[in-house]
Every structure is written in C-alpha cells, then in structure tokens.
Design a binder for these strands. Structure first.
Lengths: 257, 257
DNA sequence: GTCAGGCCTCACGCCGCGTTAGGGTCAATC
DNA sequence: GATTGACCCTAACGCGGCGTGAGGCCTGAC
C-alpha cells in the first residue's frame, strides 16, 4: 500500500523535501507509514493536513501554534484566527507608518519641504473638530473620550502622505456609493455590500479598536444623527445618508459578529 | 574624558546593553573609546550614529545593510530608501490579502459556505481562458508563457475566499471608473488617478511580477486590442475602454518607473 | 575587608528551514 | 551481477538579531 513519497508530496504541495523532514521532526506532520528502510509514506489524510498547515503558515502563524490550532476543535480555531487578524492589522498599520516615514525622509533628504503641522489637519477644520468632539461626549458619555484620544494619537502619528492616501481611498468608496444610489441598486445587493466591505476596512484602518457589529451599527447611527456627517453625505447625493446607513446595517448583520 | 557607559547609552536610547555589545561585535557601532579595563565609552557622535541605526532598523533594514547605508553618500541613501519603500509596500499588500483571507475563512468556518473547487474558477470560463491564452501567445510571443504559467500556479494556490475578495475589489474599482466617466471627470484628474492607483495595486496583487511602467502601458494597450477585454469594458459604459486606457497611461507616466 | 552593583567575555538558544556531507535503496540497463 | 542514476535517509551547521544565562573582574561606599 504505497502512499506518496516525500518528493511526490513535495511536488504536489510545493514545499521542499527538507520542509517535510522538518515537519516530521517537530511532530507537525508525521507520515502515515514509515517503511523498513526508513522511507516516509504519506496518505490522503496527511495531504489534507499539509494543506491546512500551509494555509495557516501563509497567514503567518508560527508552526507550533499551527499544530495546536489544527489539533483543537473549531471553537479555538475561530479565536486563533481572530487574534491573528488583529496582529496582522497592527502590522499593516505599522508598515504604512514606515512607508510614510520613508517618504518624509526622502523629502527631507532631497531638501524639499519642511513639514507643515497645520497642513496636516487639512480637511479637518480644527474648530469644527473641537465642536464635534464635544458633541460626541455629550451624546455618548465620557467613556467615548478614550476612543477619541486614541484617534488623536493616531492622527498625530500621521504624516501628510498617509492622510492623502486615506482621503483618496474614502473618497473613492463614497463615490461608489453615490454611483450605486444613482443606479438604483438596493443597499443590500451584492455589489453595494462589497463596497460596504471596503468601507468597513477603511474604518478598521482608522480606528484603533476592532470593528464589531455593534460598533459598526453605532457608527451608522452616528452618521444619521450627527449634523456634520449628515451634511457631508447629503452634499454628495440626496438620500445618501440613509442609503449608506442601510448598507452598513445590512453588512453588520450579515458579516460582522 | 568620560563619555557614556553602556548602560547609560542603553537608557538614553532604549536598546539593551546586549544589543550594544552585538553592534560592537559586528562592527556596526564601535565605542569612541575603550578603557584599559575593557569598558566601552561612547561619545556624542556615537549617539547620533545609534539614532540613525535605530531609525533604519525601525524601517526593517537588515543590520549589515544599515552599516553600508550609513557609510554611503546621500544619493545612495535615497536609492536604498526607495528600494526599501517598494519592499514595504509589497509586504503591506500581502498583509491586506491575508486579512481578507482570514475574514473569509472566518465566514466559512461560521457555517456559511463550503468552498467549492469548481466555483473557484467562476468568472473564468475555461474554454475562453484557453482561447485567450492562445491569443496572448500569438500576440506577444512565447516568452509570455512564463508569465501565464506563473499566474496559473498562483491561481491554483488560490482558495475561494481569495478569489471572491479579488473579484469584489476589481468590481468596485471598475464601478468607480464608470462613475467617474459618467461624471465627466478627466482621466488625469486627481480622483481618477487615485482610482487608477488602486487598479495598479490590484494588478500587482494578481501578477507575480513587478508592475513596471512598461508593463502597465502594455496592459493598457492590451485592453484596447483584445476583444474580450474590450467587450468587458464597453459593456459597463460606452467609451470606458478608452477612458481606462487614458487613465492608465497617465498614471504610468506620472507614478511608475 | 566586604558588599552591591556596575562592567566584561564566552556561548547556547530561538525559528524555519537551506544547504552540504556522507551514505543506503530501488529500478533499469549492461 | 555489476553499474548507473535517481531517489531516500540522518546529522549537523548556518542565518539574523539578539535574550539569557554563567562565570569573573572593577569600583565605590560602608
């Protein structure tokens, strides 16, 4: 009863023979059978397990954690994935910061501009911002302060380049909603929900805390209640606020937890 | 003439004493002075150099490269930073893809959809794909085969989640172009160029090779010449192909090298 | 003189394998 | 049955960037 040899598995899966040896050594993937000559033979089950391993490895899990995750029930798997998602996002934010820093360094090296602190808040009139903050505290109570402070810290870290990129991104997303609204697409239709997914991602990138279902729904409510947000969306298209809210609520129900 | 001791430098800079030892060992940061007792003493110059080292380390440069960069003239430094920026951006793209994959996996785990091998190629009718491939080889010569094979390998690696996410992403981007075209925005205007940037990123995610200016321009040409692409874009809006091409060409000239 | 708290130099350990080095096994061909 | 060449094995070092000891010298305060 043959089974696959190391090099066959290697070819099928794309990993090296050495990697298979290694996984055997550390007990992550044992062959189904070992011949009297010491040859390793793998079966279908092992191929499936290897697929799982590679998937998690792709996601950046350390090998020992992969072992634990694969040998644990589904429940733990969800938790592990969620935790890992958080790590990845933190890393993504960090990477963006680094790119920005490089841009600034390059600018400075090339003798161009010294940074202009005021321009950094371009698009956010400071007076308005203060008012908005007061309004939020008034509306949601003092515990929202933490979040606001967190956002401010994040914003201080920001440099122009990032700011521009984020602005462009959200502008594109909002343009998509305007277009969808004009085309009469229902807010819970697939394309609009895909767009809403991008919106959620954008929010997740700005916001230092996980975007839960409740948080996203709250945000939708905020868009309707806060005059500045409302004005912003209505300026883009009549009924835009309501449309966006509907899309967000549908998305929250279907995709978030 | 005192100078700072290891622990003083450590406290000032935030690195460990061991790290200073290490940097001394590998010749990255030598003390200004070594006492008869073997004690290391650092001066202001060394503190400045350490700052530079830490800056580059933050950016993810390997230590040996940092050494070379610091001992090089400014223009080399610019080159190194630029190259590193590209690396970081690639990493950021990868991380984003991973986060999306996790999201989709979580959705699947929570009982929604089982992934369906056949559906994986949804949107790419296999017969059409074969035809398209033949056409490409005919048009660009056999050396394009490598790229096609690379893409196929990548596609085989793909899971459903990835595929869906990418489809949603490109659909959103194309919708943006349709909308911009309808609004009469010039193809080289800022918002359209930002959208084009997203398009380039999407291409970069699909394509296993770097998206150079020449490659992107070729792709623009391809969109016009290949009947399937042409049909695809014209189906979304009249004049869409030409519009997209104009945006891509402008982007290539301004942003790519 | 003695104690605490610097400082020093080895040197192993971590992670995920790549990469020799040195040697057995299998199938086909001479 | 002997050779060949493709495949298999184990064992062990190497990388990068230090953390974390172990074991011992220096210095200043009591």
């Amino acid at each position: 009863m043959g089974g696959y040899t190391v090099s066959e598995v290697a070819k099928l899966s794309g990993v090296s023979v050495r990697t298979l040896h290694h996984y055997d050594d550390i007990g992550l993937l044992k062959p189904a059978d070992v011949g009297a000559n010491g040859y390793r033979y793998y079966g279908k089950d092992e191929l499936l397990r290897l697929q799982q391993i590679l998937f998690h490895r792709e996601l950046g899990f350390p090998l020992d954690e992969i072992g634990r995750v694969l040998d644990a029930p589904d429940f733990d798997r969800v938790a592990a994935l969620t935790a890992h998602r958080t790590r990845l996002q933190a890393q993504a934010r960090r990477t963006r910061r680094l790119v920005r820093t490089i841009d600034d360094t390059l600018a400075a090296l090339q003798g161009a501009t010294t940074m202009d602190d005021k321009a950094m808040y371009r698009g956010f009139d400071p007076e308005k911002q203060a008012k908005q903050e007061a309004w939020l505290v008034d509306r949601y109570g003092p515990e929202i302060r933490k979040s606001i402070d967190a956002v401010k810290t994040v914003q201080k870290d920001w440099k122009q380049a990032d700011f521009d990129a984020a602005q462009a991104e959200i502008a594109g997303i909002e343009a998509g909603f305007v277009c969808a609204l004009a085309d009469g697409l229902p807010a819970d239709s697939a394309p609009v929900q895909a767009l809403t997914g991008r919106h959620r991602d954008w929010i997740a990138n700005q916001w230092p805390q996980p975007v839960t279902r409740a948080a996203y729904k709250n945000l939708a409510a905020l868009y309707g209640e806060h005059p500045d947000f409302h004005a912003r969306y209505e300026a883009q298209a009549a009924g835009m606020t309501e449309y966006l809210q509907a899309a967000m609520l549908a998305f929250a129900e279907r995709e978030l937890t």
